[in-house]
């Protein structure tokens, strides 16, 4: 009986991390599911669904040598999740402005209050060292409707950041 695990690996970015990690998992009999892998501030981060028939200890033993060789911090959770559990987002909120503390908390607080359930959030700091700008893209489902979400976005805009919302009308053809 196979189990799904969520494998998290974090460490200083360098070439070859993905290839070495996934080769070790494949050689050890794992099947990979969905993944998010991204370089954040010079650190490479991996969150990876792994389907494996043995125990979490066996999986850690399998991946530890390659993680250590690449100086990656490793974390493993057995998860209830499985594939084909996608939730289709129905709205996208984009926020940007001069970077300052509190943007994410204020924005997501207002969105949560409006019944917005985040499925995907990505944020980046761009601009220059002395004038950083914060850019955030959020997708999710507006449980209390698009109008309620739009009202929250209008409130967010009063906080001194640019914000806009657009419905995602997924075309099925």
């Amino acid at each position: 009986m196979n189990h799904w695990y969520m494998l998290t690996l974090v460490g200083k970015d360098r070439p070859g991390i993905v290839a070495k990690v996934t080769a070790a998992l494949y050689d050890g009999g794992c099947n990979l599911g969905e993944a998010s892998m991204m370089r954040l501030g010079g650190t490479f981060t991996i969150m990876l669904m792994v389907d494996f028939e043995r125990s979490s200890k066996a999986l850690i033993d399998l991946i530890s040598p390659v993680a250590e060789s690449l100086d990656l911090h490793l974390h493993l959770d057995r998860i209830e999740g499985r594939l084909h559990q996608h939730v289709e987002p129905d709205a996208r909120v984009t926020v940007y402005g001069a970077d300052r503390a509190g943007i994410v908390a204020k924005v997501t607080g207002a969105l949560a209050e409006a019944g917005f359930n985040i499925t995907d959030l990505e944020s980046m700091v761009g601009g220059s060292e002395d004038k950083p700008i914060y850019v955030m893209q959020i997708e999710g489902t507006a449980a209390e409707g698009i109008e309620s979400l739009q009202a929250a976005v209008d409130v967010i805009r009063k906080e001194g950041v640019e914000a806009h919302m657009e419905p995602i009308e997924t075309l099925i053809g």
Binding site: H84, H86, E169, T170, I172, G173
Partner: peptide
């Protein structure tokens, strides 16, 4: 740009 799915490609957009 827009989000698309397809009856011939279930569970992915």
């Amino acid at each position: 740009s827009g989000r698309e799915g397809c009856m011939s490609v279930p569970d992915y957009t």
